[in-house]
């Protein structure tokens, strides 16, 4: 009886999982269609659309812009988010709880509202249609991921360690680089990975402030869907998914290693 229940539950879980992921994975067969329109392959497969992706200058520049924007915005989010989390951790007062909450805000405000606000602001700063504008916006919206993961890492770290380092004559920067950061590297890495993925597949902000000069991969897909039904879109989408999966697997691997080491230490 209990076993039947277990089997049923497993089937149900499998169905839910399939419902969640299959729509995403349908792009893989579509990307291999021999036809010139979006369709499931019938009568053979073809790699021509994947070829387009890596030869067509429009797609190539999309890849380049996406990688550039995601990398730079992640770097900014990491620097600011880590500094914020460490600062709050060191001060550890009521006020810093509020600061941390404020940092999470970009996660809760609907992106479209945020994009509107940033649009008005950027008009005055003359940042509309610039890569710098998108990088800054993505850095801000990626910030919460870094603050959250680094704060979680810091929760296990004793603030007294800073006192120990200072008692050995360490300066503040030395304490930061030799004692604090090495202990929260996992949180920093996770935060960076999430911030990167966030920028990598972000569309709304890019549409609002990217103007007609910037085309990231998601935006190219969006335009392609609206304008023509080139199966290269499916190839791009597949590439996006594969890349995201790869990044998440790295994150998972790092977490495993960490847990293994923690288990060994105790």
């Amino acid at each position: 009886m209990a076993q039947d229940g277990g089997a049923l539950r497993r089937v149900l879980a499998g169905l839910i999982l399939a419902f969640l992921v299959l729509p995403a994975f349908v792009v893989f067969p579509v990307s291999l269609t021999p036809n010139r329109y979006l369709s499931l392959p019938s009568g053979g497969v073809s790699w021509q659309h994947w070829q387009t992706l890596f030869t067509d200058p429009v797609w190539l520049s999309g890849i380049r812009e996406s990688v550039l924007i995601a990398s730079l915005s992640t770097a900014l989010a990491l620097a600011a988010g880590t500094a914020c989390a460490i600062g709050c951790w060191r001060l550890g007062s009521r006020l810093t709880d509020m600061v941390r909450s404020a940092m999470i805000l970009p996660l809760m405000i609907p992106t479209i509202v945020y994009a509107l606000g940033i649009y008005r602001f950027y008009v005055e700063l003359d940042l509309i249609g610039t890569m710098l504008g998108v990088i800054l916006a993505h850095a801000v919206t990626g910030l919460p991921y870094v603050v959250l993961t680094v704060t979680a890492s810091l929760a296990n770290l004793d603030p007294a360690l800073e006192r120990a380092a200072r008692s050995l004559g360490a300066s503040v920067p030395q304490t930061l680089t030799r004692v604090i950061v090495p202990n929260i590297i996992p949180g920093i890495l996770s935060g960076g990975i999430f911030a990167f993925i966030h920028s990598w597949d972000e569309l709304i902000i890019v549409i609002f402030i990217g103007g007609r000069e910037l085309f990231t991969l998601p935006q190219l897909i969006w335009d392609g869907i609206n304008e023509n039904l080139d199966p290269a879109i499916a190839a791009v989408a597949s590439a996006l998914i594969l890349f995201t999966l790869a990044v998440l697997l790295v994150e998972l691997g790092l977490r495993r290693r960490r847990q293994f080491r923690a288990a060994r230490d105790t």
Binding site: D158, L161, A164, S167, L168, G169, S171, V179, N183
Partner: peptide, 22 residues
């Protein structure tokens, strides 16, 4: 701050809760 760090080295400090770097 830097000079103070140097002066502080004249003292060793052993804490109640060890405070080793984990």
């Amino acid at each position: 701050e830097r000079e103070l760090s140097q002066q502080r080295r004249l003292f060793g400090f052993v804490f109640q809760r060890f405070n080793l770097f984990p």
